[in-house]
């Protein structure tokens, strides 16, 4: 406090010197403005002559500031904040909706996949059965045909055999007649020979 008051006294002293140096401007100001009974160099914040100019400008400047804040700045910030809130809310809703849609699509996809798989399996099974049936039919018809052919061939073989057997008798008779003719020079009746052959084979 001692420092402040001593410095203060020094300031008072310098202010007394000032008007002499500062020229007519300071002196004129002191003369034109009513400073009341306040002594020059009073502690500035308590100098009542300083009150009016500060209050006037404070009211003016703070009034304009208040108007700018209440009419322009604060509603704008409020709009920004509410816009952000609604935007975020809408985006979240949209995201949730998209997720639900994706899940539904996934479920549908799975269901389709399952039915298609089942369809494919039934188609495969049916095709298999059809093929098996066709193969069976073809096999049975082929077997029947082959059996008939075999039977026909066997019949033909039997006929050929019978015919061959009869030919063998003729050939043997002829061969016997030729042998008799060569050996004895006698002509032998064919009928007799075959009767003899029949006697010989039946023995």
């Amino acid at each position: 406090m001692a420092i402040i008051s001593s410095a203060y006294a020094a300031q008072e002293a310098s202010q007394e010197i000032n008007p002499a140096e500062g020229g007519a401007e300071n002196a004129g100001a002191a003369g034109s403005l009513a400073h009341g009974g306040v002594q020059k160099g009073a502690f500035p914040p308590f100098d009542t002559s300083n009150f009016a100019p500060q209050l006037v400008w404070l009211v003016l400047i703070f009034g304009v500031l208040y108007l700018l804040m209440s009419r322009l700045a604060l509603p704008r910030v409020a709009t920004i904040l509410s816009t952000r809130e609604t935007t975020i809310g809408a985006d979240l809703d949209a995201a949730r909706e998209s997720q639900a849609k994706a899940q539904a699509a996934d479920a549908q996809n799975n269901a389709t996949l399952r039915t298609k798989k089942e369809e494919a399996q039934t188609i495969g099974r049916e095709a298999q059965q059809k093929i098996a049936a066709e193969v069976g039919a073809l096999r049975s018809s082929a077997e029947k045909k082959f059996a008939e052919e075999i039977a026909a061939a066997e019949a033909r073989i039997a006929a050929e055999k019978a015919r061959a057997m009869t030919s063998v008798e003729g050939i043997a008779t002829e061969a016997a007649a030729a042998i008799v003719a060569k050996l004895t020079g006698a002509q032998v009746d064919g009928a007799k020979l075959s009767a003899a052959y029949r006697d010989a084979t039946t023995h």
């Binding site: 403005l33 009513a34 100019p53 400008w57």
Partner: peptide
């Protein structure tokens, strides 16, 4: 007295600072 003082100037600067930030 409605003199424009250094106090008025700094009131103006403070208000200007607020306006710069908020507007």
């Amino acid at each position: 007295e409605v003199s424009f003082t250094n106090a008025s100037l700094y009131m103006l600067l403070a208000a200007l600072g607020v306006v710069l930030l908020m507007v």
